[in-house]
Design a protein around this nucleic acid. Sequence first.
DNA 1: TGACATATTGCGAATTATTCGCAATAATGT
DNA 2: ACATTATTGCGAATAATTCGCAATATGTCA
Lengths: 128, 128
Amino acid sequence: MKIGKRYTQARKRIFTAIEKMDKPVSAQEIYDYIKQNYEEVDLASIYRNLELMNKSDAVNVILFGEGKKRYELKNKKGHHHHLFCEGCGDIKDIKMKEENLINNVKDSQGFVIKKHNLEFFGLCPNCQ
Amino acid sequence: MKIGKRYTQARKRIFTAIEKMDKPVSAQEIYDYIKQNYEEVDLASIYRNLELMNKSDAVNVILFGEGKKRYELKNKKGHHHHLFCEGCGDIKDIKMKEENLINNVKDSQGFVIKKHNLEFFGLCPNCQ
DNA sequence: TGACATATTGCGAATTATTCGCAATAATGT
DNA sequence: ACATTATTGCGAATAATTCGCAATATGTCA
């Protein structure tokens, strides 16, 4: 899982940030996290690297309709989906049986399916 | 399925536009479509109404990670998901067995699940 | 039907997320 | 250590969406 051609400071920091925060994070959150550690990586560089990491399958892009993208390291945990609390924005991982998720797709009309996003929305215990 | 308190020109036009285009559309696409018909609704009003329609469950919000939201009327077709072509952006509806999609969610950690988004990404016949 | 109360619109400006161009800097191979 | 060039930082540019507010249009009720 190699990102770009050089192992730069920025990449180390971004990778570590995502890993440590251990949940789907936005570019801005990565920026803030790095800054908390008295280091800094320009936001534009964070975006550029997230795109690279996505293309090389190092991260997943996760969408909750907040108007921004969230990113999560791919290898860390196995394949899973998310529960997004519409009250407080809390995010939980969930696993589910889905051996047949793609097989069950009726008539994919000639599409070659490469990946899927499945997110659940609801209310966490505190927000119910 | 009532949107707001008044049945305004803007609402008629927006509703008709989404219905006629018959696919998940962005706010801008709604705006352009209405304009083609020599009518006009301000973009801000389109956004405001889409939000209302979403809250009152008249439309679904659909995300493909393009950096914008897409909207689709809810009642028209039954529950379904989408195939998004990463090549040309073409969108197809798909149905699938999912009686047990939610039931299969293991350990929802006290969340009350209200809805889910499931989108597939791949390549359409032309883009393969 | 006409007038009122107020929900909704249009307009312009403001935000927020993300992208771009380019010169300066830092990784890597030799 | 040096040269090559990938990558960064910076500042400006886009794109999507939101906001404030005055003007307008709807639904209601006398």
